[in-house]
Every structure is written in C-alpha cells, then in structure tokens.
Amino acid sequence: MAGEKSSRARVTEENKFIFSTADTCDFFQVSRETLSNWEKKGAPKAGRGKWNIKTLMEWKFDGRHTDSPGVRKLKAEAALKEIKKEQEAIRLAVQEGKFISVEQVTRELTRKLANLKKSMLAMGHLVASNLASLDMEAAEIAKAEVDKRVKEALTEMAEGRLYRGRTKKKEK
C-alpha cells in the first residue's frame, strides 16, 4: 500500500508541470506560432499538445538555444557593460593608488636583481673560504666551478635565455 502511494505521488509530482498548448502559451504569454518555433529549436515537449513547464523553462532560459539577432545584441550589450564595469574598477583603483607605475617596478626590480647578482657572485668565495681549512686546492677548484656556473647563469638570464646548468658531459 505504501509503495502504491509513493508511486502515485511521484506520478502526480511529474504531472504537476504538464500543461496544454493553450495553457503553456498563456503561461509564457506567447502565441502558438512562437511555441511551435521553440519546438523546432529543440524545446522539450511532454507529448502531443502537452508541455512540461518546468523543463521548458529550463530550456528557454539556459541561453544555448537562442541565437537570434536580438539575443546576440542583448548578450553583446551585457558583455560591454561588464567590460566597462571592469575598466571603471581599474580606473578607480589607479586613482586610489592601488597600482604602481612601471618606473617604480623597474627601479625596484633592477635594485633586487643587482643585489641577487652580487650575492651570487660572492658564492664562489664563500664556498672556497669554508673549504680552505680542509683542502686549499679543492677550495680553489670549487670556487672556480661555482664562479663559472654563476657567470653562465647570469649571462643567460641577461640574454633572456633559460639557464639549464650544463654538466661536464654536455660541455665536451
């Protein structure tokens, strides 16, 4: 008995949104011709002369089936408004000082890269001084190798290339 009630409730629930063509036209305030055109464009239909209002509304407002000039114009206008809104937000952010000038960025980046270069060039000396107490010859070899790699990296960065850290096998 309980199974019958739930299946009846399900059928009633599914039929709750089924309207006749006339009622569907009244609901959407469109003519039968418009409803017929929607059907040709892929509008879901429950059967002959029957329309599921719920699925028809989902179809109508999903925006994928309409490509009329009016709809395209509305979409273009909406997109233009969004772009103008974004431009206005940027303009206000500039006025509020939330952005910094290219010159400021260039100055700060130049300063930081110069500091990086100085630190990298000092690496060979630091390695050598730490190894000197163990083996002076190894310290000199390590210093030369580190200096060579650092200079290669800095040169390639300055030329806009990506440093790949060549191994001795590749250098031959």
Rank of each mutant, 00 (worst) to 15 (best):
E88K: 13
Q87D: 12
F99V: 07
R64S: 10
F61T: 07
E88W: 10
K84T: 14
R91K: 14
D62R: 02
K73Q: 04
R111M: 03
L74F: 04
K98C: 06
G97A: 08
V71T: 04
R107F: 10
Q87H: 11
I100P: 00
R111D: 09
R72N: 05
V102F: 04
E108Q: 12
I100V: 13
K75D: 01
E96W: 10
E58H: 09
S68D: 02
M57T: 13
Q87C: 11
K98W: 06
A89C: 12
E58W: 03
K81Q: 14
A89Y: 14
G70S: 12
K85G: 15
E108D: 11
T110V: 10
R91H: 11
K84Y: 09
A79Y: 03
H65W: 04
E96P: 07
K98Q: 15
R107D: 06
E58F: 11
Q95A: 14
V71W: 10
L109S: 14
I83N: 09
R64N: 07
T110G: 02
G97H: 01
L113F: 11
S101L: 09
A76Q: 05
G63Y: 01
E86L: 12
T66C: 11
F99E: 03
A76G: 00
Q104N: 14
L80G: 04
I100S: 14
I83Q: 08
